[in-house]
C-alpha cells in the first residue's frame, strides 16, 4: 500500500518534470493553502517550513494563514484561501474544538483536504498525518523514571486539556509509571497554550506544594523548559529530572548544552510531515489512494544525540 503510494507520487513527479520542465506545479496542483493554528509554536512553524521548502522545489505556490489559536479566525481564513483558488488544502485545526467547517467548505469546492496533527470529529479529510504519541511518550517517561532510579514523586504538566496529543501523551507516560510501582504521581495540571511561561508557573506551584519532587514530565518542550527553569530557580537542579516532548529548535539546542534539569525529549519528524502532506495532496488530486492515517514516529532525543537534529531537523 505504502509502496504503491510512493511509486504513484514518484511517477507523477517524474512525469511532470520530464514533460513540462518549466511549468508551475505538479499534477495539476499549482497552489496549496496551508492553515496553521499558531506560527509562534515551533512545531507548526517546522511543518510550515517543511511544506514551503518541498513545495518550492516542485514549483508549487504555498499560501499560509495563521489563526493565532482562534477557531473562528481560522474558518474566515479558510474562506479566503478558497477564494484564491487553491488546488489543495492542508488543514491543521486550531483550538481545542477542531472545527469541521473548513473541511466542509473545501469539500464543497471539491479540493483535497489533508489534515495534519489533528482532524475534526465527524469530518475527516482525505488523510491525516500526525506524530505517534503513545509509544514516544512512554519512551520519554521511561527514560526520566530510569534516570531517577525507578522511584520517587512525579508530576505531569499537561497540554491543552482534551486535545489528542494531551490525552495520548499522558496515556503513554502512564504506561511507564504503572511499570514502576515506586513512582508516585503526586500532582498534575493542565496548561492552555503549551507555553514555557505556563510551564514555569505550574512547576513553581507544584514545587512549592511538594518540595521533594524527583521527576517532571512536560507534555511539550515549552512546558518542560519552563518547568526546568522553575526547578533551577528553586535550587533543586540536582534533585529533579525533566522530560519534554516535540523536539523544538530551542529545546534541542538546550539539550546540546545539557546544563539544565531538562535532559530528554521526543523529536517529532515535523519537516517530514510537511513533505508528506504535499505528496499526499498531489496524490489525492490525481486520484491515487493514500492511507487514511499516516503516523511518522518521534525519536527519543537526549543530550547525546541532540546535536545531529539541531543540524538538520527531521
Amino acid at each position: 500500500m505504502k509502496l504503491m503510494f510512493k511509486t504513484t507520487i514518484a511517477s507523477i513527479v517524474a512525469a511532470t518534470i520530464a514533460t513540462t520542465a518549466l511549468a508551475e506545479g505538479v499534477g495539476g496542483v499549482n497552489k496549496i493553502g496551508l492553515a496553521v493554528p499558531n506560527l509562534q509554536a515551533d512545531f507548526f512553524n517546522q511543518i510550515k517550513l517543511g511544506v514551503e521548502g518541498y513545495a518550492g522545489k516542485l514549483g508549487i505556490e504555498v499560501i499560509v494563514v495563521d489563526a493565532k489559536n482562534d477557531t473562528a479566525t481560522q474558518v474566515s481564513q479558510v474562506q479566503d484561501l478558497l477564494t484564491q483558488g487553491i488546488d489543495a488544502f492542508i488543514y491543521i485545526p486550531a483550538g481545542a474544538a477542531a472545527a469541521a467547517v473548513p473541511t466542509r467548505l473545501a469539500r464543497a469546492e471539491g479540493i483535497p483536504v489533508i489534515n495534519v496533527d489533528r482532524e475534526p470529529d465527524g469530518a475527516p479529510g482525505d488523510t491525516v498525518i500526525y506524530g505517534e504519541n503513545v509509544m514516544s511518550a512512554y519512551q520519554v517517561c521511561d527514560h526520566i523514571i530510569g534516570l531517577a532510579g525507578g522511584k520517587g514523586k512525579m508530576v505531569v504538566i499537561h497540554g491543552q486539556k482534551g486535545t489528542t496529543p494531551e490525552v495520548q501523551r499522558f496515556e503513554g507516560c502512564k504506561m511507564a509509571m504503572d511499570e514502576n510501582p515506586g513512582v508516585e504521581l503526586v500532582a498534575q495540571q493542565w496548561s492552555q497554550q503549551w507555553s514555557p511561561d505556563e510551564g514555569f508557573q505550574i512547576a513553581q506551584n507544584m514545587l512549592q506544594a511538594h518540595p521533594d519532587i524527583r521527576i517532571i514530565f512536560g507534555q511539550a518542550d515549552g512546558l518542560a523548559m519552563g518547568a526546568a527553569k522553575a526547578v533551577q530557580v528553586a535550587s533543586l537542579a540536582d534533585q529533579v529530572i525533566v522530560g519534554g516532548y516535540d523536539g523544538d529548535g530551542a529545546a534541542l539546542k538546550s539539550l546540546v548544552t545539557c546544563d539544565t534539569p531538562f535532559v530528554v525529549t521526543a523529536t517529532q519528524s515535523t519537516q517530514a510531515m510537511g513533505v508528506l502532506a504535499v505528496n499526499s495532496a498531489i496524490a489525492v488530486a490525481n486520484g491515487a489512494s493514500v492511507p487514511a492515517r499516516q503516523i511518522p514516529n518521534a525519536v527519543l532525543t537526549t543530550c547525546d544525540n541532540a546535536a545531529k537534529f539541531v543540524e538538520k531537523h527531521p
Partner: peptide, 15 residues
Amino acid sequence: LLAARLDAVQPSSGV
C-alpha cells in the same frame, strides 16, 4: 452566532 459558524463550542473561544 459563533457556535453556529463553528458547529462546536469551546470555553477558550473569544480570548
